[in-house]
Write a protein that binds this DNA or RNA. Structure first.
Lengths: 344, 344
DNA sequence: TTGTACGCGTTATCAC
DNA sequence: GTGATAACGCGTACAA
């Protein structure tokens, strides 16, 4: 890579490599004149420090690993974008990885990150108990790890998420108060967050004396590329209609599904919100451009990203033992916005 | 980072470090028995080679830098996702960076990537002549660079894109043949591709003897966060309407705008496609879920990503001089899909 | 088939 | 203030 090194500068300037190194690092024990000479030469000859040598010597990097399930989910994309912004002034560099919700891919990513000697890791794990011991090992022995979003996970560290059950409780209750009684919940396959979200939904029904129907929990495996979710959802809804059980409201439990459902309802000639009200978790900026404009529950990605980074850096700088420390759960508030897809 | 090193293994097994190194690298000059011993010990003690020492020694990495304007644009997101998939079996690792279309950020990213000693770089530059000399320097002296998407750029290397003018010519002609005469073109601020896209649009008008109107090139700076594009576009369209110049068709020149325009037209109570037909460049999977379903021109991201990677790796493995070599332009075919937003 | 010795570029610990 | 020198962990020419 670089041709001009500390050594070559030393030779050229008739100084020792040690002096060059110190000058370049602005050490106080080098006199200004020498510093100037060195810096000038370095700049003129386009000196670029060798990261590998430096890391080899110091054992430190300013890399931050980010491990998420998907980039294609609006929430994670937004989160990453916020991280990118927040990281610049702090002079850290991001190494983002996707797991596709697969523990194996997650493991590879984590091993790679450890090998890159990253300063810290921010992760939304593939599932509740994926790579727990590896993460534990990394967190205790290599570098601090922060959890976000999917915080139902065994690792003992700071966790940043939202109060899922509370959010779904709230929107379900709102729908009930608008007179909707047949509220369905649409969700992906058992991720930790889903459970909590369903719990809030059920509690709201319960507290309003509306019977819970198994059929109204609609699962769709939107990760399986072989599965045609659109068709599947269409069939499910058609069948419910035949049984005279068509929901009059749907709560979307995940980013992807929340967006899709509108198109699917349109395909079934169902009017939103007249026939079916729709609201869903999603962080898409497109909510306003959908027809009808989609009511959404948005996670505070910016806050989450900044907090994650802040906590991580605190742990990075603190050298104390991470095995036994007081870690906290941070549950931030989501923002529910009612648009045309729900009755106002 | 790692505690167990080649040295420590050597000591433990009463062998020399060199033997360990060779055994770990499966050298043919080490007998199987020794290899087995070493590998077994390494595995048992969870040996992890130090990337930095290795890189320092070999001067090589298997990192591939990817530099794009935005992650939040469906096209680039799709492209990156394809790269992620394609890169796994090849045992390379991606380092993605965003430039926000800003040359300065692009420069930082490039400098960082060079410092990381990446094996190669795939880039869609911030603009036509951004960092040309730096890229040239990197390409010639450090590692191969491949251009994609925004291929109107001075760097002499392989370039992968689509035939922009041809694609817009085609859709404009299609609209004309459906009887639309007042076709507007919606675009971001002067990126290379935009020029070509406008050219195709103009040529189609010309060949069909439809006069070109300056007013029908509608610019919107969707990158400027301070600007409310929605309001801006609304005003522009309203004004055209007042002048009795409301377009009867709009061609969207960029991902972001193509999606937004539907919501804006709805806000103006204009019917799509009856009043205004809409078609646009965009790689979003949501086209079908918009109302009406959006007609789109999709770039072949998968093909582009795979080709970019293939060409890059070819250059990486070929050690020949990259200053004077035969580089090619690859213009792949986009896929136009007509949906409800255009008359069929 | 294995060992010795050296160097990659940097920083840190001494000495002067 | 500055200079030797060693060391980080690894790969490899050369020797044995």
């Amino acid at each position: 890579m670089s041709e001009v090194t500390i050594k070559s500068i030393a030779k050229a300037l008739n100084l020792s490599p040690a002096t060059i190194s110190r000058a370049l690092n602005d050490s106080h024990e080098i006199k200004q004149a020498t510093k100037d000479r060195v810096l000038a030469y370095a700049k003129a000859h386009n000196y670029r420090p060798n990261t590998f040598a430096k890391n080899l010597k110091t054992g430190k990097t300013n890399l931050i690993g980010v491990v998420i399930p998907f980039l294609s989910s609006p929430f994670f994309l937004e989160f990453i974008e916020e991280l990118y912004k927040a990281v610049i002034p702090l002079n850290y560099t991001l190494l983002p990885f996707q797991t596709q919700n697969r523990e194996e891919l997650e493991k590879e990513a984590l091993l790679f990150l450890r090998q890159q000697n990253v300063a810290g890791i921010i992760i939304s794990p593939a599932h509740e108990n994926s790579n727990v011991s590896l993460l534990e090992d990394i967190h205790v022995n290599s570098c601090p790890v922060i959890l976000f979003d999917r915080i139902q996970h065994g690792l003992r560290t700071h966790k940043i998420g939202i109060h899922n059950s509370m959010e779904t409780y709230q929107v379900t209750e709102d729908l009930l108060q608008k007179g909707r009684k047949r509220i369905a919940f649409l969700c992906g396959k058992d991720i930790g967050n889903t459970k909590d979200r369903i719990r809030g939904y059920k509690n709201a029904l319960h507290n309003h004396a509306v019977p819970f129907l198994d059929k109204y929990i609609i699962y769709a495996d939107y990760q399986d590329p072989n599965q045609d979710i659109d068709e599947e959802l269409k069939t499910t809804l058609s069948r419910l209609k035949e049984q005279d059980l068509l929901p009059d409201a749907i709560v979307g439990g995940t980013d992807t599904l929340s967006i899709k459902i509108l198109g699917i309802l349109a395909g079934l000639k169902l009017r939103v919100p007249e026939d079916v009200a729709v609201i869903g978790f999603t962080n898409t900026n497109l909510a306003d451009y959908l027809a009808p404009a989609l009511s959404t529950i948005r996670q505070p990605t910016q806050e989450m990203a900044r907090l994650a980074l802040e906590l991580l850096i605190e742990l990075i700088e603190k050298t104390s033992n991470r095995a036994d420390q007081n870690f906290k759960n941070f549950l931030l508030a989501a923002t529910t916005t009612y648009r045309q897809s729900t009755p106002i």
